[in-house]
Design a protein around this nucleic acid. Sequence first.
DNA 1: TCGAATGATTCTAG
DNA 2: CTAGAATCATTCGA
Length: 325
Amino acid sequence: MRLDNMLLAEGVAGPEKGGGSAAAAAAAAAAGGVGADNSAEHSDYRAKLTQIRQIYHTELEKYEQACNEFTTHVMNLLREQSRTRPISPKEIERMVSIIHRKFSSIQMQLKQSTCEAVMILRSRFLDARRKRRNFNKQATEILNEYFYSHLSNPYPSEEAKEELAKKCSITVSQVSNWFGNKRIRYKKNIGKFQEEANMYAARTAVSATSVSAHGSQANSPSTPNSAGSAGSFNMSNSGDLFMSVQSLNGDSYQGGQVGANIQSQVDTLRHVISQTGGYSDSLAASQMYSPQGINTNGGWQDAPTPSSVTSPTEGPGSVHSDTSN
DNA sequence: TCGAATGATTCTAG
DNA sequence: CTAGAATCATTCGA
């Protein structure tokens, strides 16, 4: 009966355990209901599942038919025999039940193999990692553009995610995955992403046009919450900051805890950078020392200061073995 | 064929 | 529930 439940759950078997065309229709309806899901892989999966279901039901029907035929055949034989010898109804009943039991065991095997087929199908199709496809170039461009133009706060809102998802023709959760991966990988190795960052920053700078000439404000008109996102300067707000901190320590790996004093150093650095870089934002420029104010636009969630910087003046000499494995 | 890149999943912490 | 981190599994380029 567990098999029945499983097949039912998979939409292979109908609600009636007897099977037959009524069950097939019900199963088809159930599968259709699930079909509201998106993605082409699912449709592929469903197609295969339908195939399995069809095979299952045709086989089931065949068995049922054979069972009935055989039963009537036996009944006829018994009837013929009843002319020569007396046959009790009990005997007939016993005969029929034996036949049914035999056939139901065959059905059991059918169900089992169907279950196996479904399981294999599931593992092959529903495991997304097996079916991973890289996003197309345009989608990656769009995502990167958003990421680097919101480098100070790369956490798109739900609406922004939906927007991006629509633009890239991917799902919202894929957008979330992408940003999750991007944030962590960017943070882990800013150096590697510098070129990319510059590229996208430059691109957005071009699209924003004439930033350098004015020299007073570089506010992005589209994003009120981000602390400046138009020019190539603001990219250095966060990106270069991490770079500089990281380069102080040479090649570093985030390992131990970061001291509290480091945070203030980072904040100071941030100020220096934002000031030497000129006007990043009126907020940062006007306030001389307010870590909170800066924190909101530079440190992402929780000011993830990379690596264990013991002393900012220390050169890239301290190569400690990391390998936390 | 190997290693880097990358999308997805899983686990943990807040 | 979400973000971060680690890891897995696949893809892609040299």
